[in-house]
Design a protein around this nucleic acid. Structure first.
Lengths: 268, 268
DNA sequence: AAGTGGTCTAGACCACGAT
DNA sequence: TCGTGGTCTAGACCACTTG
């Protein structure tokens, strides 16, 4: 084991070799980071599907020819990033949005009361393909004018009836190439979280996101939709969601009515 | 080492013993969790001050009579929670707010442009002691009417001159008992982040916080202060800051002008 | 009882920073 | 050169889940 730190004999082609003479700064990557990269690659390639168990640590250790502790550290980090979920005695599972616990992981709006329930009543208004507007293309890393899907939907408070105005209105943009055959009808048919639907039907999994928040005036259209005056303040939430490899796959512009709800955040 | 998992012979009194017959559910605490608790206790007790190094892993292992790996895991978690900062080759240090890198850890407002700078120009308007209003007392866990300090300040954009309207107005409430002798004069004299000042002068360190965000109308007072119409939308940020043991030590109500700034967040 | 993740140890060696 | 944290290994045993 003389070359334990040589950025790997077997694992990654990134290892500097004799025939590939000296990249000015040799890339030192710990073994467990390389294992982590291999695991992510397997996740990307759908080798293990969301919700299913990955092989046991001992098996992975044998496969990659490293000790169990090294595999363990790799999995630890992936679990910390919410890509995997450990369950003692059962195994390690590919994280999924199709699960009660993690269902509202990306929706940070909660009712003010003690229940803290987020809006759940989904209503889909629109789903159309169109050439990407410049700003949408820029965010999604697409060529200007590339095909994108535009979805519009609202979310209503958990216990509200049909007549009550919704709490959230969202405009969602997706690269059309990744969601072939997605129509309003299919959206209306499906039940449950949108991200679970994407995962199941299109093999697109959102692993993390960044949001930008602003306070804005509702304006006439959103005001009507949400049952507010045109000058009423709304919380505007711009979300860019990324997949395993960090590439953006969804742009979402939400407007939240925060009269009886709030956006929560933890700082540490 | 037969009792390795017996919730510890030496470390914590929480261990179930023969003389303390069977608490219905025996509390099993891993060794590294117990070490972690001991480290936190030392941090609380100011055994090691913010910015200073804690003893080396080997030394702590000897002190607590465990292996280095166990101490390591405890420190790993504390570093992940931002209570400690590891620096390879140098040591492990107590986290501090008095450092360029972590200075704006709790302020999530950034300019829209490519610089992404947060507001830095601090101006203190007020610092008075008064009986705690009911809601403030509730949030801080104080008796109704207990003494609290009320600070009001504004924050202006990084490069703005004195005539430009500020971007943030904050009302801050602190338990008076924890900040003896804090006056507007001292606030005006100090330079740098408020949390660094609290840490240095009053031994009060904010380790984490939760925030609740809403969009609200400015109203006449805030409007005037921030140079906006009364009905202009503002981002309202309510922050409750906690110290090592999880007890709340600061309540802060901020109003952010988000016309040229945004609040950012990462979801994963 | 078997299989999985979780904890703990002891020891070796590497990378980084200061001296 | 030394001391620090960082990586890796091999092996033992515990805790949880399922059959």
């Amino acid at each position: 084991m003389s070359d334990r730190f040589s950025a790997s004999s077997v694992l990654l082609p990134s290892a500097p070799s004799a025939s590939d003479p000296a990249p000015a700064e040799a890339v030192y990557l710990p073994l467990y980071q390389q294992i982590k990269a291999l695991l992510v690659r397997s996740l990307q390639g759908q080798e293990w599907a969301p919700g299913q168990a990955i092989p046991a640590e001992t098996e992975l250790a044998a496969r990659y020819k490293v000790s169990q502790g090294t595999v363990r550290k790799a999995i630890d980090e992936l679990a910390a990033e919410n890509l995997l979920v450990r369950r003692q005695g059962k195994g390690t599972f590919v994280a999924t949005h199709d699960h009660e616990q993690t269902q509202f992981r990306f929706l940070r709006l909660r009712a003010d009361g003690p229940e803290r329930e987020g809006p759940r009543q989904r209503r889909y208004q629109r789903c159309e393909q169109l050439p990407a507007p410049a700003s949408v293309a820029a965010h999604l890393g697409l060529a200007p004018g590339a095909g994108v899907l535009h979805i519009r939907r609202t979310l209503g408070a958990a216990g509200a009836d049909a007549a009550t105005a919704p709490v959230i209105c969202e405009d969602i943009w997706l690269p059309a190439a990744l969601f072939p055959g997605l129509t309003l009808e299919r959206l209306l048919r499906h039940k449950g979280p949108l991200y679970a639907f994407f995962e199941r039907e299109f093999n697109v999994r959102m692993t993390r996101a960044r949001e930008r928040l602003r306070a804005v005036a509702a304006g006439p259209d959103l005001g009507t939709l949400l049952g507010l005056d045109a000058h009423a303040p709304l919380l505007q939430v711009e979300r860019l969601s990324l997949t395993y490899d960090g590439s953006p796959v969804e742009l979402r512009l939400g407007h939240y009515d925060t009269r009886e709800h709030h956006y929560w955040n933890r700082l540490d």
